[in-house]
């Protein structure tokens, strides 16, 4: 009886350690609930719910910064295209950002570039994750 109980306890420990919340899970949950610009605590440290691309875009809105961000977004997009894992919306975002830049709306361009770069980064992360995890969906 004792053996059975402790065996179950051991298995529960294994499964609960696997299920422990990662930083990414915590970040995603906070982001989903509060959007960008929110602070939260994870394992004693304080973080914000901003994506790195949004942090990069939170600088003075001018032509130079807008052009730099658009170039970075295009570069990241080219990388995910090379992996054949790009998302449909990203091209449209890059186009919209370029249009805003050409029209002198630097803030708009920078915000859209941040979104496009995020999409491209997520596409790359998805590629690497799916390379590892696809096999888990195969019926045995």
């Amino acid at each position: 009886m004792n053996k059975t109980i402790s065996l179950v306890a051991a298995l529960m420990m294994v499964s609960s350690s696997v299920a422990a919340q990662s930083f990414d899970d915590a970040f995603n949950a906070q982001r989903a609930m509060y959007g960008k610009g929110h602070s939260f605590t994870f394992e004693g440290q304080t973080y914000t719910t901003d994506h790195p691309e949004e942090v990069a875009a939170a600088v003075e809105a001018n032509a130079e910064n807008a052009a730099k961000l658009l170039a970075a977004a295009k570069d990241q997009h080219a990388q995910v295209v090379a992996l054949d894992f790009d998302w449909t919306l990203t091209k449209k975002l890059l186009k919209a950002s370029a249009k805003a830049l050409a029209g002198g709306d630097f803030r708009k361009s920078m915000d859209i570039s941040a979104q496009a770069q995020y999409h491209a980064r997520m596409g790359m992360a998805q590629y690497h994750q799916s390379q590892k995890e696809w096999v888990m969906a195969v019926p045995e």
Partner: peptide
């Protein structure tokens, strides 16, 4: 086989999904 089971796109779905 990998293509069939690998998730892709913004909705993160595979053929198998």
């Amino acid at each position: 086989k990998q293509s069939f089971y690998a998730r892709r796109g913004q909705l993160n779905m595979s053929c198998a999904s």
